[in-house]
């Protein structure tokens, strides 16, 4: 392996928390995943996780406020893993309060909620929520929520 070619990458993107930005974020993440060597089907799964996570932030965390931002960080190790971090300054939530999707439920018993969170956990190896993190001002917001999702190749 060439010593000049880095096998690690660390990329940042900040977008307004709006649905019309979803594609921008999923494209950004998918590009890093492709560079790291994730196959197309795995990239689709990563896009799903990121899409669901951002949709939750837009819909719930920033439900009552306009002008919110989502900070996206993608760290990769070539042919090894991807670490996606999403930061928002919206309302925290308790993942335990979200209804659990039951993939074996009958159609009539199937609940509409919880599908997004379920998809995130199905598609990624690790999904970790942190709420009301105290930031190092001014480099970081004073308080923020952080979601970390990790997937190994």
């Amino acid at each position: 392996m060439s010593s000049t070619q880095s096998t690690h990458s660390d990329e940042l993107l900040t977008v307004p928390a709006r649905f019309d930005q979803l594609r921008r974020v999923t494209e950004f993440v998918s590009r890093q995943a492709e560079r790291a060597g994730f196959a197309p089907l795995e990239r689709n799964r990563i896009e799903l996780a990121v899409d669901e996570a951002c949709s939750n932030i837009i819909q719930h965390a920033y439900a009552d406020q306009a002008g919110g931002l989502i900070r996206v960080r993608v760290q990769t190790e070539a042919r090894s893993r991807i670490v996606i971090t999403l930061v928002d300054t919206g309302k925290p939530f308790d993942p335990g309060d979200v209804p659990q999707h039951d993939p074996k439920a009958n159609l009539d018993d199937m609940k509409i909620g919880g599908l997004g969170l379920y998809l995130m956990r199905q598609t990624m190896d690790d999904v970790r929520f942190e709420f009301n993190v105290r930031g190092r001002w001014p480099r970081e917001p004073k308080r923020f929520n952080r979601l970390t999702m990790i997937k190994d190749i």
Partner: peptide, 29 residues
């Protein structure tokens, strides 16, 4: 699907690509 089945109908899928089939499997659909 719920609404169609209650009325005696159905919603079916044609020609899903590999990614869509995978997504359906992931959620048990």
């Amino acid at each position: 699907l719920k609404s169609a089945r209650h009325g005696g109908g159905n919603v079916v899928i044609a020609e899903p690509n590999e990614r869509m089939v995978d997504t359906l499997k992931l959620v048990g659909f």
